[in-house]
């Protein structure tokens, strides 16, 4: 017997079930199809203003820095300001997301390059799929628009998040993914990011910037 058959038949023997038990299979299929929501913390629920407030509070608690822009066209100036404040070069790496590409970066004196990172970029910018209020988490999806390497290799990761994309909980992000990619289908990578990279492996002392970005800066657009 193959390893696969051996393992499955041993599981069934231990459970005292057969592989052709139709009601058992049906109950699993039904559960997968229903993907019912479980308990979600009350703290993330509430109207858009409450979600925005909770997102900011939670994100700042894990050392994410936050800036607000009334309009997405103000984002380049906000980002230039952030780079200046931290004495960083006025250069950004980004994917080919039209929502980013069409902004007036030049007017903010920012130099732009496009594509994934090979490890030599200091600053990157991504457009978030969504935010999650309950823990101040960003949801980023892979693709040519926002390549995953941009979330990890640069020292400073800047993310633009529309206030209207701040959801209550992770379940709401799953719903968006199903809407966009189809039920049971996922993009290659979904990153839920909650703060800049960190490690406490040396004497439990919390240090930022372990392998991923040392800084995570979110520009929230709209209100």
């Amino acid at each position: 017997m193959s390893a696969r058959e051996d393992i499955l038949s041993n599981v069934r023997r231990s459970l005292g079930v057969s592989g052709i038990d139709a009601p058992r299979r049906a109950s699993v299929e039904a559960r997968l199809a229903a993907h019912a929501r479980g308990i979600a913390p009350q703290r993330g629920q509430g109207d858009a203003a409450a979600r925005l407030k909770m997102f900011v509070e939670q994100a700042q608690a894990v050392a994410t820095s936050i800036a607000h822009a009334a309009d997405v066209n103000e984002a380049p100036a906000q980002i230039a300001e952030f780079l200046r404040a931290h004495n960083l070069p006025a250069h950004l790496r980004m994917g080919d997301d039209a929502r980013l590409r069409n902004l007036a970066w030049g007017a903010a004196s920012l130099e732009i390059s496009y594509g994934p990172s090979a490890g030599d970029d200091l600053n990157s910018v991504s457009f978030a799929e969504a935010g999650v209020a309950e823990t101040g988490t960003l949801a980023l999806v892979s693709g040519a628009h926002n390549p995953t390497t941009l979330n990890f290799l640069p020292d400073n990761h800047i993310v633009i998040l529309r206030a209207s994309d701040i959801e209550a909980d992770y379940e709401a992000v799953w719903a968006r993914l199903r809407e966009r990619y189809g039920a049971g289908i996922m993009p290659r990578t979904v990153n839920l990011v909650t703060g800049p990279s960190r490690s406490a492996d040396i004497e439990q002392k919390l240090l930022l910037g372990a392998h991923g970005p040392r800084r995570l800066h979110v520009v929230i657009v709209g209100d």
């Binding site: 939670q58 608690a61 894990v62 823990t135 988490t137 996922m186 993009p187 290659r188 990578t189 979904v190 990153n191 839920l192 990011v193 909650t194 703060g195 800049p196 990279s197 960190r198 991923g212």
Partner: peptide, 13 residues
């Protein structure tokens, strides 16, 4: 922690 920094969902190549 309320949530670890990176929760990554990987599906296929």
């Amino acid at each position: 922690q309320e949530m670890s920094v990176y929760t990554t969902l990987s599906t296929g190549p």
